Amino acid sequence: MSPPLGRLHVLTDARAGRDALGVATRAVEAGAPVIQLRVKGRTDRELYDLGTRLMAICARHGTVCVVNDRPDLALAIGAHGTHLGADDLPVAAVRRLVGPGHLIGGTAREPGRAARLVAEGVDYLGVGPAYGTSTKAGLPTPIGPAGVGAVARAVDVPVIAIGGITADRVRPVLAAGAYGVAVVGAVSDAADPAAATGSLLDALGEA
């Protein structure tokens, strides 16, 4: 059985020398229920070393750990799930690799693709960008809470809104139908990542 899916997903951020592990640790200690390991431009060994350290922190706090893009890395570090982007392996292929009980997330921004991913077997969807964001280059036009809601109404799995999410923007996406939110800069760029995590949890009603 897959672990329960929390409503706040904090993605690691190693841009421009940011302390991805340190920020993730503070977020976990503040109560973040899900951490997603997403780091670009590192060797597999570096990712494995970071992932094993992150998993140890998550294990101490009962936090779910999901790996972005890489089911092989997720299995290697004993993570709870894998989040797949549009150009990653198909859901069915990943399920054969990871077996039952491993969370698989998919990425969608419109109802048709979302429905196809659910039919293929994803456990939840990351939907966005909900708002404009500078943490990832080349993203399409933001879909806003209305776009998030359109996807949420089309599927029966949890929808996690991502892209430009701040504590003040949590309520609009929840009201539109999102189950939860995923954040990068709202925590990694905060002067106090633990306090920022707490503010997001307050907005989600999970403090």
Rank of each mutant, 00 (worst) to 15 (best):
Gly6Thr: 02
Arg7Lys: 13
Leu8Gln: 01
Leu8Asn: 00
Thr12His: 05
Thr12Cys: 05
Asp13Phe: 02
Ala16Ser: 14
Ala24Ile: 02
Glu29Ala: 14
Gly31Glu: 04
Gly31Leu: 02
Ile35Ala: 04
Gln36Ser: 09
Asp44Val: 13
Asp44Ser: 15
Leu47Trp: 01
Leu47Cys: 07
Tyr48Asp: 03
Asp49Arg: 14
Leu50Cys: 07
Cys58His: 02
Thr63Gln: 03
Val64Gln: 10
Asn68Gln: 04
Arg70Asn: 12
Leu73Pro: 06
Leu73Met: 08
Leu73Lys: 05
Leu75Met: 15
Ala76Thr: 08
Ile77Asn: 07
His80Ile: 09
Gly81Val: 14
Thr82Gln: 11
Leu84Gln: 03
Gly85His: 07
Leu89His: 10
Val91Tyr: 01
Val94Phe: 09
Arg95Met: 04
Arg96Val: 13
Gly99Met: 08
Gly99His: 09
Pro100Gln: 13
Ile104Arg: 07
Ile104Cys: 03
Gly106Asn: 07
Gly106Tyr: 07
Thr107Trp: 10
Thr107Gly: 08
Arg109Leu: 10
Arg109Glu: 12
Arg116His: 15
Ala119Pro: 08
Ala119Glu: 15
Glu120Gly: 04
Glu120Arg: 11
Gly121Ile: 11
Gly126Glu: 10
Val127Lys: 12
Val127Leu: 11
Ala130Tyr: 05
Tyr131Asp: 03
Gly132Leu: 13
Thr133Tyr: 05
Thr133Asp: 08
Ser134Ala: 15
Lys136Tyr: 03
Ala137Ser: 14
Pro140Phe: 00
Pro140Ser: 08
Ile143Lys: 07
Val148Tyr: 09
Gly149Leu: 00
Ala150Val: 06
Arg153Val: 03
Ala154Asn: 10
Val155Cys: 04
Val155Leu: 08
Val159Ala: 04
Ala161Val: 01
Ala161Leu: 05
Gly164Cys: 09
Gly164Trp: 01
Ile165Lys: 04
Thr166Phe: 08
Asp168Gln: 13
Asp168Thr: 13
Val170Gly: 02
Val173Lys: 04
Ala175Thr: 14
Ala175Val: 11
Tyr179Trp: 14
Val183Pro: 06
Val184His: 06
Gly185Glu: 12
Ala186Lys: 04
Val187Glu: 00
Ser188Lys: 00
Ala190Arg: 05
Ala190Gln: 07
Ala191Asn: 11
Pro193Leu: 04
Pro193Phe: 00
Ala194Ser: 14
Ala195Phe: 02
Ala195Cys: 10
Ala195His: 13
Gly198Cys: 12
Gly198Pro: 05
Ser199Trp: 13
Asp202Val: 14
Ala203Arg: 12
Gly205Asp: 00
